[in-house]
């Protein structure tokens, strides 16, 4: 299948990309193209102009900045999982290694994945669990958006018109903090039916801080406060984890349903994968 006609240009800087985006209302940013090009081939998307940002040097880097790791938006999934700076963030590695396949990981980017905000994408759950923040730049300058304020809904983010994601800031792990990611994947597409990213901080044998995030479960990735609350001040045991995980995907949230999985099955999977991810982070699996 062939996309409809489109103009193509390569931006040489972030400022130029923003100007092109502002001047061309039907234009779209192109990063790895591994969500956008397949959608254009299916004619689900037909922008008039593609603004390629993949080779802008200021967008493709990974740096250790003391209290945080900063990842340029155009860093590929492969760049990230093979970088020294994130190796102790197990959730990043475990999620990144399960994205698509080798070829997809060589092209697809972190910035593209989060800007696209597919409800089944892996990175959003990891960024939520790690308390990341997203740096964006637009015609009105730069701002930073906390991950838990970024993913607003079905393919919907907090990005304003003309804004692009420039970098992702991930706080370094604290003493006693461990992370993990587990996913139940759709066997053909490898996208998450349920993916769970967690961070657990243990001090003196008790869980002092916990973040549990899901992708695939609802119309956007989200932090499950119920599971996190049930872990606080609890000892690190499988019993504690199982009890907390049973609180997953309860309460007032919309649960996705499709021909792979009913709402009831997804809810069940959320509890199972919360348990597995938490056990993984705590070294109990």
């Amino acid at each position: 299948m062939i996309p409809s006609s489109v103009d193509y240009t390569r931006a040489s800087s972030v400022t130029e990309a923003i100007r092109l985006l502002t001047d061309n209302p039907d234009a779209k940013i192109l990063a790895g193209g591994h969500s956008l090009i397949p959608a254009m081939k299916l004619r689900l998307n037909a922008p008039s102009l593609l603004i390629d940002i993949a080779r802008i040097p200021e967008l493709r880097f990974i740096s250790d900045e003391g209290d945080k790791v900063v990842i340029g938006a155009a860093s590929t999934h492969h760049d990230i999982i093979s970088n020294e700076a994130v190796q102790d963030m197990k959730a990043m590695i475990e999620a990144g290694e399960l994205i698509g396949d080798t070829q997809v990981r060589n092209m697809g980017t972190l910035g593209g994945s989060i800007a696209h905000a597919d409800p089944s994408a892996d990175w959003p759950a990891v960024l939520l669990a790690l308390g990341a923040s997203i740096q964006v730049q637009g015609p009105n300058g730069e701002r930073s958006i906390a991950a838990n304020e970024f993913f607003l809904g079905f393919f919907m983010t907090a990005l304003d018109e003309g804004e692009i994601v420039t970098a992702i800031h991930i706080p370094k792990l604290a003493e006693g903090q461990q992370t993990a990611y587990r996913k139940f994947m759709q066997p053909a597409s490898r996208f998450a039916i349920v993916g769970c990213g967690v961070s657990v901080t243990v001090e003196g044998g008790l869980i002092k801080d916990a973040k549990v995030a899901f992708t695939g479960v609802s119309d956007a990735a989200f932090l499950d406060e119920g599971v996190a609350a049930a872990l606080i001040e609890q000892p690190v045991t499988l019993e504690t984890i199982e009890a907390a995980a049973n609180a997953a995907a309860e309460g007032d949230i919309h649960i996705n349903e499709d021909h792979f999985s009913s709402q009831a099955y997804r809810k069940h999977l959320a509890k199972v994968y919360a348990k597995r991810a938490l056990a993984g982070a705590c070294g109990l699996d």
Binding site: M1, I37, L50, T102, Q103, N106, M107
Partner: peptide, 23 residues
Amino acid sequence: DTSSCGACTIHLDGKAVKSCSML
């Protein structure tokens, strides 16, 4: 037509990519 099969795999700057899913 779905970026799934990998028959189109080539190396772009030394890395395997699916040439059907890029311009």
